[in-house]
């Protein structure tokens, strides 16, 4: 029955910041309460940085996107915790295109390698894109979803940095990131 089909998706457009991260759009005087998703960890001790850039078909970083991540805690669990939010969101910086998350490295969930779900909404993206980030220092080959990406699986692996990891999403081209239909 068409009446009970999911609403069709529409692009988040260039002004997604206003609704999801209003401080980045320059909204200051708003009588609204706390921002949601900006802070993931309550204590920085074991925190890592996760730097993400999203490149378009010309290799140019998109500067008007919204990125959300969702991941297990270091023990591999998604159980609610006061210390760790599991969920975070950042915009791709309007000058540099970089998004930086401060998070913790996830542990392995049952039968899978440690990974982070990444979800990208932006102008020009009609249905928000879902992918995964895996780690270069883990045995990813045991992970069935990583393996399903076959020859393109390398596009899912982040690079190590001094303070954590960096990951580049390619929307198009020979290095196009694997996006999932889940």
């Amino acid at each position: 029955m068409a009446d009970l089909k999911e609403n069709a998706s529409q692009t988040a457009g260039p002004y997604v910041h206003i609704g999801c991260m209003p401080q980045t759009a320059g909204l200051k005087r708003r009588n609204m309460s706390a921002l949601l998703g900006e802070v993931m960890v309550s204590d920085d001790t074991d925190a890592i940085t996760l730097d993400i850039a999203v490149l378009d078909g010309d290799g140019v970083p998109i500067k008007d996107g919204l990125i959300e991540i969702w991941q297990a805690a270091p023990d591999g669990s998604y159980a609610p915790s006061k210390d760790f939010a599991h969920w975070g969101r950042q915009v791709t910086d309007m000058e540099t295109g970089q998004a930086r998350f401060t998070t913790v490295k996830p542990g392995a969930a049952k039968g899978q390698a440690p990974h982070i779900l990444i979800w990208i909404a932006a102008r020009g993206i009609n249905l928000a894109l879902t992918s995964r980030i895996y780690f270069p220092d883990e045995d990813n080959k045991l992970d069935p979803i990583f393996r399903a990406a076959e020859a393109r699986a390398a596009t899912l692996i982040a690079a190590q940095t001094k303070t954590g990891y960096a990951h580049t999403i390619h929307l198009q081209g020979p290095k196009e990131t694997v996006f999932f239909d889940v």
Binding site: G57, W70, W87, A109, Q112, G124, R152, G173, V178
Partner: peptide, 25 residues
């Protein structure tokens, strides 16, 4: 127009749902 450089060209890869996709904030 904005979709031309931002639309992935490969088909989405269908994967089974795991705890990662079944849970959320």
């Amino acid at each position: 127009r904005s979709s031309r450089l931002r639309a992935p060209q490969q088909k989405l890869l269908h994967i089974p749902q795991t705890e990662t996709e079944l849970t959320g904030p």
